[in-house]
């Protein structure tokens, strides 16, 4: 176990390092650099000033050398400033991270809470009308473009019915106002995350129900609820954890779109704004934090999977 844990930790750290370097190199290839942007703001700068400024900030040094310097500073907690917000990146990032965590976390929990009963229902009656309807729901959730789903939600609930706000921040304090503003983004993201989870719950349960131990339990007189909850579902659990972790990456992608459409002040929208507004330092840190969070969630799921499933032996 310790060996496995160590290997996976090193692997994850290495992946994050590779992504960090790739992002750093990509940001370097984006239009303009900090000094060019300064030049736009102040036409009195001469080309000698530009060269001096670039040398001062080390922009004339090779990419790898700059990356190592950036990494050393980042590891000591010095993540630099945001150009758009004129604030330290950490201060901009932290509230946004919490907002996205709330959005993605709630959606993931709701998706599981919906997928479990629906998946169980479908798996108990394969081929029935209910099963087909549930399958169709999963298929649509797989195939629908995220931004269009968000737009449809606005058309239906904000434009036509006028029940809920089309996005933004609540103007008055209080839990109810917050819930009204969170309803559409959370519902959209939940539906986006539902497809794969629902399909897996149904398939995993169907497979588990075919095991001989289920027949044994049945023969011993166990009822349907007991068999599903105590015998079949626990068999599907370890894989479900892995599937859920894989969803985190997808949900962060979904959050970028949902937050942008609904003006939810989270990480996804921040990443998009930073890229569009040439705030490269902010974009770099935000994307890196998001990627690291997703990879760590997967690492956690792998460890949990190993703990939950006694058949998995770790070498």
């Amino acid at each position: 176990m310790t060996g496995y844990l160590l290997r996976r930790l090193v692997e994850t750290a290495l992946s994050i390092l590779i992504v960090a370097f790739a992002l750093y190199a990509l940001v370097d290839l984006m239009p303009g650099d900090p000094v060019d942007l300064m030049l736009q703001a102040d036409p009195r700068l001469t080309s000698a000033d530009v060269a001096r400024l670039k040398a001062l900030h080390g922009l004339d040094r090779p990419l790898l050398e700059r990356f190592v310097a950036w990494l050393a500073a980042a590891l000591s907690g010095e993540l630099g400033y945001s150009r758009l917000y004129s604030l330290p990146v950490v201060e901009v990032l932290w509230p946004r991270l919490l907002a996205t965590l709330a959005l993605v976390g709630t959606s993931l929990i709701l998706a599981v809470l919906l997928a479990l009963p629906l998946g169980i229902w479908a798996a108990l009656r394969p081929g029935s009308l209910a099963d087909r309807a549930i399958n169709l729901l999963a298929f649509v959730a797989f195939s629908v473009p995220s931004f269009w789903l968000a737009l449809l939600a606005i058309v239906l609930f904000a434009v036509l019915l006028g029940w809920l706000p089309a996005g933004g921040e609540p103007s008055e304090p209080g839990l109810l106002a917050f819930a009204r503003h969170a309803a559409l983004p959370v519902a959209t993201l939940t539906l986006l995350g539902l497809g794969p989870v629902l399909r897996f719950v149904r398939a995993g349960l169907l497979e588990a129900l075919r095991e001989p131990c289920i027949r044994t339990a049945r023969a011993k007189g166990a009822g349907t609820a007991r068999i599903v909850l105590l015998h079949a579902l626990p068999q599907a659990m370890p894989t479900l954890v892995t599937i859920l972790a894989l969803q985190v990456g997808g949900l962060l992608s979904g959050a970028l779109v949902v937050e942008t459409v609904f003006a939810w002040l989270g990480m996804g929208r921040l990443i998009y704004e930073a890229i569009m507004g040439n705030d490269y330092n902010l974009a770099l840190v935000a994307v890196l934090v998001g990627t690291a969070a997703v990879l760590l969630a997967n690492l956690l799921a792998d460890l949990l999977h190993a703990r939950l499933d006694p058949r998995v032996r770790l070498g």
Binding site: L26, G32, L246, G249, S253, Y272, V287, T291
Partner: peptide, 22 residues
Amino acid sequence: IVLALPLLPLLVVLAAVDPGKL
């Protein structure tokens, strides 16, 4: 690792690269 990555944020970064610099 690629299957787990948050696709869209990375695609947005890649799409914002200035082709002129390449």
